[in-house]
Design a protein around this nucleic acid. Structure first.
Lengths: 205, 205
DNA sequence: TGTACATCAGTGAACGCGCGTTCACTGATGTAC
DNA sequence: TGTACATCAGTGAACGCGCGTTCACTGATGTAC
């Protein structure tokens, strides 16, 4: 990061990075544009060269997050093939891994309260991410007899909700949030029981 | 609410109520102490007669929320008896119903970022709430053969996470959050599949 | 019933502060010739 | 290679604003006698 001199060189990304670490430590509403500027070593006014304001800055963090997230999900999905089951399980694991590894991005995406649809670019990249999980769910649903097959969108929503709940409740380092089990184990076992309920894993395994 | 005159009469609760509706509309970090005071028809300084500050005000909202929440869960649990299964399912439904009916409380409890353990009274009432779900899970686990019985705390955590995920992802009126299914149905079907996976509901129902 | 007095909830002014945003500017960089 | 000039990223001062918090105060209420 060549920061010396009058011109920063790569201020836009430096601001995003500063914002990400502020979000991580103080929450998406817990910091100011001025703080982000200072953290990037720059005057608050300089931010306006690259972003329309605070909201826009957070949106860019979320956008980059969705991009990374979708890539990870895609990679997990591909790697699990050709087994639909292992693909599906891998995407669940990837979800949690992402939340762990990129907490700032995760919070910008899911906890900042920004409206996805207000920003077309954001909507596009977000739907790329969710599309992959839906694809994995749809592949998997082929293995359920048609007459008792629930809509793929439904169990992709179940898994998404379970993943999100585990992240929010058991992953945060909040003093006071006691995690009864490691989140990874919790998610793994939860998904296992769920898939057994769908008849996709033998009952006695 | 007798508000006329110099003395308010019930300012403490009026402040809590004002805060709850501010949280509901602007998020737990999206309002100021001064706004809450103004909404209650009072000078910001008056707040300090009843609370130590903003944080303390939110904590009281959360405390009242946990109290209501625990009562609802308890009621649902009792009402489902003596069937352990129906008790368990009822607590899941109660969770979602609470989140829907008391969004301000819910956000103060789960999205405000306040540390439960920093406030002993808050920790006490919060554990009363989670204790009920764990009890329901423990009752239910008696119906699983001991050798394949997972810890009750584990599947209470699974259900808690699923409930929370459904609320966060599919209940919020955010423009852009399309809910593929009504949250109630999503939760109901998710829990159903999960319980089938545990062998507590016949596979072909 | 009336009066004196203690209590205490809420006031309003004051404080220092950091915010977001604007603006004319400055000075580094890159390019044309 | 050198020079003139256009570009534009970042500066720093300024603005009006609302914040949280403190303080001496005021005036309503309740109670003792």
């Amino acid at each position: 990061m060549p920061k010396r001199g009058y011109h920063h060189g790569n201020l836009k990304q430096a601001l995003v990075d500063a914002t990400l670490s502020l979000i991580e430590s103080k929450g998406p509403q817990g910091f100011t544009l001025s703080e982000a500027a200072k953290a990037a070593g720059v005057t608050p006014a300089a931010v306006y060269r690259h972003f329309q304001g605070r909201e826009d800055l957070i949106a860019e963090c979320a956008r980059q997050g969705y991009e990374i997230f979708a890539d990870l999900m895609e990679y997990a999905y591909e790697k699990g093939r050709p087994s639909a089951l292992s693909s599906f399980e891998a995407t669940g694991r990837a979800y949690l891994a992402f939340a762990r590894k990129y907490p700032g991005h995760y919070m910008a995406m899911f906890e900042s309260g920004l409206s996805i649809n207000a920003n077309p670019e954001l909507a596009r990249v977000a739907s790329r991410a969710s599309g992959i999980l839906e694809k994995a769910a749809s592949d998997l649903s082929q293995h359920i007899p048609p007459e008792k097959r629930p809509p793929a969108a439904m169990f992709s929503a179940h898994i998404w909700a379970l993943c999100h709940g585990v992240v929010e409740l058991y992953t945060r380092g909040d003093p006071g949030a006691r995690a009864p089990f490691p989140p990874e184990d919790l998610l793994e076992s939860g998904i296992g029981i769920y898939l057994r309920g769908l008849g996709l894993i033998p009952q006695d395994s």
